[in-house]
Write a protein that binds this DNA or RNA. Structure first.
Lengths: 211, 211
DNA sequence: TAACTAACGTACCAGTTCGTACATTAGAAA
DNA sequence: TTTCTAATGTACGAACTGGTACGTTAGTTA
C-alpha cells in the first residue's frame, strides 16, 4: 500500500526480504543445523527478534527460503520458447536453459542438497511445490512427442527420465565442484570450459534420443 | 599382535572401528555440524571419552570417516576387468560398476555431499585421497583409446569428462532421491526400475561416444 | 495532537553440546 | 604376585544457541 520510498526506517517487506536473502545464503552454505539464527540476524540490518516476528522460528524461516527459491525457478523455466525450433534443436535448448540455470543459482543447488540430506522432510510440508516443477517436464514431453512423430527420436523414452539425465549433469557440475576439484584438480565451473560442457550436454542428450 | 578372540572386554581396534562405523552413519545422515558427538558415542558400546582418546575430537573423527570411506571405494573400483571386452561393452561395464557402486554405498554418496557443502575443506587435509581416484579414470582412458583406435568412438573425448557424465547420472539418482520423489512422485531407487536406469546409462554414454 | 498498532530492539534464560579432569580397571610384563 | 600402562568410565563445566519476555518507537488514524 505504501509507496516504495527506499528511505523508510520501518519497512516490513524489506525486512522480510532481507531476512530471506541472508537466510538463503546461510542455509545453503552451512546446512539447516549448521546455520545460526544469530548469524543470520547479524548479517541483516535488523535483529534476531524479527525472525520470530515474521516467520515464527528457524524452521519456518528455512521453509520460507525453500519456497521462494523454487518459486523463482518456476519463473525462470517458463522463459524457454522452443515451439519454433525443430525437435533436436529444441531439446538442446531446453538442456541449455537448465544448464544456465544451475550455473546461475549455486545457492539453490546447495539448498536441494541440504533438503536431500534430510530426506526432503521439509519440502513435503510445502505442498505448493509439487505441481510447480511439472511444467518443465511437460514442455520437454511436448518436444519429445514432436521428435518421435517426425521419426527423429526413439519412441521408448520417458520425458521425466530425460529431464533426469539433463538435471544430473547440470546438478553434478555445480554441486560436486569442490570434491571434483580436490580429487582431479579440475574446476568444473571454470569459465574457459563452460562452452565445452554446454555443448557436451547437448551432444549427450540428443545422442541418446536419436534413432 | 594379540589374537582376535572376539570376547575381550578391551580391544582398541574394535573400539576404533565401531566408532568409525557409527560416525559414518551419523555424519552421512546429519552432516558435519548436525552430527552429535554424544549421539555417536551412545550408539556404540563405548563412551564419548574414547572419541577424544582415539581421534582427538569431532573434526578428526570426521576426517577418519572420510579417509576410510574413500579407501574402501578404491578397493571396489579395482575389481572391474574390462580388457577382454570390446570397447563398447567395456565402457558399458565401467558405467555399470559405477552405477552399482553408488547404489550400494548411499552413506558414501551422502558424505561426498557433506564434503561439498563445506567446500571440500576437510578433504584437502587428507592428501592421500588425491592419487586414489585416478585409477578409475586411467582404466576408462585405456578403453576409450582402444575404441578410438578401432574407429568406433569419436576422437575428441576426454576420459575425465566421460567419467563425469557417468558419475553425474549415478550420483544424482542416489543423492537426489528424496527431492525427486517429493517433486515428481517417482522413486529413483525403486528396484523395479533399476535395470531400466542401468541400461539407460549405458545407452547414454555409448550413444555419446559413438561416431 | 492524542491514541493506537505494527514494527523493532534489548536482555536474558534454559537446554544443548563439545570437550576435559580425574578416577578406575584389564591385562601384559617382570 | 606385583607393577605398570593402555584402555575405559564418570562427572562436570564453559560456551553456544534457539527462543522469549518485555520495553520502545515510527507512523497512521480519528
Amino acid at each position: 500500500m505504501t509507496a516504495e520510498t527506499g528511505e523508510r526506517r520501518r519497512d516490513a517487506e524489506r525486512t522480510r526480504t532481507e531476512l530471506l536473502d541472508v537466510a538463503t545464503e546461510e542455509f545453503a552454505e552451512r546446512g539447516y543445523s549448521g546455520a545460526r539464527v544469530d548469524e543470520i540476524a547479524a548479517r541483516t540490518r535488523t535483529t534476531k527478534r524479527m525472525i520470530y516476528y515474521y516467520f515464527g522460528g528457524k524452521e519456518q524461516l528455512y521453509l520460507g527460503v525453500l519456497e521462494r527459491a523454487y518459486a523463482e525457478i518456476r519463473a525462470a523455466e517458463r522463459t524457454a520458447d522452443v515451439d519454433h525450433l525443430d525437435p533436436v534443436a529444441a531439446v538442446r535448448r531446453l538442456a541449455e536453459v537448465t544448464f544456465d540455470h544451475h550455473e546461475a543459482h549455486p545457492a539453490f543447488i546447495k539448498l536441494v542438497g541440504v533438503e536431500n540430506a534430510q530426506q526432503a522432510k521439509h519440502m513435503n510440508h510445502v505442498a505448493r511445490l509439487v505441481d510447480l516443477n511439472s511444467s518443465a517436464v511437460d514442455l520437454l514431453a511436448g518436444v519429445l512427442a514432436r521428435g518421435v512423430g517426425d521419426g527423429l527420436f526413439r519412441d521408448d523414452v520417458d520425458a521425466l527420465d530425460v529431464h533426469m539425465m539433463i538435471s544430473s549433469f547440470c546438478f553434478f557440475r555445480v554441486a560436486n565442484r569442490h570434491t571434483w576439484g580436490a580429487l582431479f584438480d579440475r574446476d568444473l565451473l571454470d569459465p574457459a570450459r563452460r562452452e565445452h560442457y554446454r555443448t557436451m550436454l547437448g551432444d549427450l542428450i540428443t545422442g541418446y534420443l536419436r534413432k
